Amino acid sequence: MNWNKLDQAEQIQEIKALSNEKPVLIFKHSTRCSISSMSLDRLLRKWKDSDSEQVTPYFLDLISRRDLSELVAKEFRVPHESPQVLLIKNGDVIYDNSHFGISYADIMGKI
């Protein structure tokens, strides 16, 4: 999976604009959390290279950018959780889930 790194506050507005053309997935990951690592692994095992044609994936490292994670929660009006996925389309969150609720099938089913 070729992640786009979400590490700048300005990218949030770019993601909103991009989501008007193609859905955007944000994966909020804690490198210190085993559940987060397992959830990420479950997603990566099912992800196909061709999926990037349908959705643009972004990766947010919560440990190094907790402030940015809080800004994402505020901008998209979704309570912060970790791990967490947000699927954004036309500037709005159309799907979010966390922990073991993160499901490749659910994400792809919303696109």
Rank of each mutant, 00 (worst) to 15 (best):
G91I: 07
F100D: 07
G101Q: 13
F100I: 11
W47K: 01
E14T: 12
D92Q: 14
G101M: 09
L25P: 02
N4W: 00
R42K: 12
E70L: 15
K5G: 04
A9S: 15
D51P: 08
P57S: 04
E75W: 05
M108L: 13
V72M: 06
L44C: 14
A105N: 14
I88K: 00
S36E: 05
Q54A: 13
N4I: 01
L87W: 07
L86C: 06
E53T: 15
L25H: 03
W3M: 01
D7R: 08
I107N: 05
T31Q: 10
H80P: 06
K74H: 13
Q54I: 11
R32D: 07
L40S: 06
F27H: 03
S34T: 15
M38F: 10
L71Q: 15
F59V: 06
I111H: 07
A17G: 04
V72Y: 04
E14I: 11
P79T: 13
K48C: 09
I63Y: 10
N4S: 01
S37R: 14
S30W: 02
Q84F: 12
E21H: 10
I15R: 00
P79M: 11
S30F: 02
E53M: 12
L40D: 02
R77D: 15
L18F: 06
N2L: 08
A9C: 03
E75S: 09
Y104A: 05
I94N: 11
I94T: 13
L71D: 09
F59N: 05
S34K: 11
D49E: 10
E75G: 06
N97L: 08
S103V: 07
V85D: 03
K28L: 05
E70N: 15
Y95V: 11
I88N: 02
K89D: 13
K74P: 09
Y104N: 03
S69H: 08
R45G: 06
K74A: 14
S39V: 01
V55W: 05
S39M: 03
Q11T: 02
V24E: 01
P79D: 10
Y58V: 05
P79L: 13
L62C: 06
L68Q: 12
W47S: 04
D41L: 10
L68W: 08
H99I: 08
I111T: 14
E10H: 05
H80R: 10
L60G: 03
S50Q: 14
C33T: 05
P57E: 04
E10R: 07
S30R: 01
D67R: 10
F59P: 03
V93D: 01
D51G: 09
W3I: 02
S37D: 10
K48L: 14
K16M: 04
S30D: 07
I107T: 04
T56F: 12
N4C: 04
V93P: 02
I94A: 11
Q11Y: 03
L40C: 08
D61Y: 08
E14M: 05
K28S: 02
I35M: 13
L87F: 07
M38V: 12
W3L: 00
V93N: 06
K5S: 15
F27P: 03
S30H: 03
R65Y: 13
W3R: 00
G91N: 08
L6M: 00
Y104D: 06
E21V: 01
R66P: 05
D51I: 09
S30Q: 06
I15D: 00
D67P: 03
F27D: 01
E14Y: 04
S50R: 12
S64C: 12
S36C: 07
Y58W: 09
I12R: 00
